[in-house]
Amino acid sequence: MSDMTHTAAKPRAERSATASMTYAIFLTAGLILLVLAPLFFYPIFLMKLLCFALFACAFNLLLGYTGLLSFGHATFFGGAAYFTAHVVKEWGFPPELGVLTGVVGAALLGLVMGYVAIRRQGIYFAMITLALSQMFFFFCLQAEFTEGEDGIQSVPRGHLFGFIDLSQSTNMYYFVLAVFLIGMVIIWRFINSPFGMILKSIRENEARATSLGYSVARYKLGAFVMSAALAGLAGGVKALVFQFATLTDVAWQMSGEVILMTLLGGIGTLIGPIFGAGLVVTLQNYLATSDFPVTIITGVVFMVCVLLFRRGIIGEFYASRLGRKLGFEHRR
């Protein structure tokens, strides 16, 4: 509430005009950067970053905009990676159909997990999703098609729509970028739709949303499936980028990682998770060569974030003096 009083001095229309102006400038700058990025950075690194950024944004759809903390999102990310890798490698699907299979598979998993988990709220919801995703992990460990500890290796990238050769890393990068942007547009449309507004009202006051006649359970399930499907989009593409799918992607540590990315970037901000994912992936890449375990850093960052810095990078920026001057409003 205190941020509201500061900005109240400016008339509302003027403020939102500044905001949309700032948004437009940032958006254009961001797009140009993303298009030019492969000139300066290693493409695999960029693609990994984009996949995790989309994954974190999909996760944030649930945590930030519906108030549900899922501790089982690795299931959708890693599950989709397995589905995509399997149909592309074994059944010879083209990449676009392979990714689609991953998305549909993740959405179905989301439907099942969501149906069970929304029966409880808050902290129980988190524990149930964690337990169910651990169950999926054991399933993947024992199932035939995942090839156990080895994972599905050397998945071909194939030709997009039959003529774009994805084995060339530049082509692959722009494919991943396109998927990322499509995913972001879907998320943006979703949270600004009437459906998204109802989700926010559920987050703020569930009892009230119920009393207004909304079937809260159905909306939560809808959000859960949507988030799972988008996480699956990220996972399916990741399987093509790295050309393998392994147990790491379905393990609970992955669920923890995506929570960290979202928390670090800013829960409930549209672009925060992108920055969170960027930081975490960069850190992992940097530490991959040393023998110092990433887990310790991850754990400490988690604790520091929760104790001192709950709004995350982008949330803090929005709430800062500069952020407010630029016309941003911090909405939780």
Binding site: G256, P293, T295, G299, M303, V306
Partner: peptide
């Protein structure tokens, strides 16, 4: 005073830190 989810996240970070340290 915060949402109980923060307690879960904090102790999750604590668990990772302790486990990572002992693995190291």
């Amino acid at each position: 005073n915060l949402d109980p989810l923060y307690g879960l996240l904090f102790t999750f970070g604590l668990a990772l830190t302790i486990e990572g340290t002992f693995r190291y």
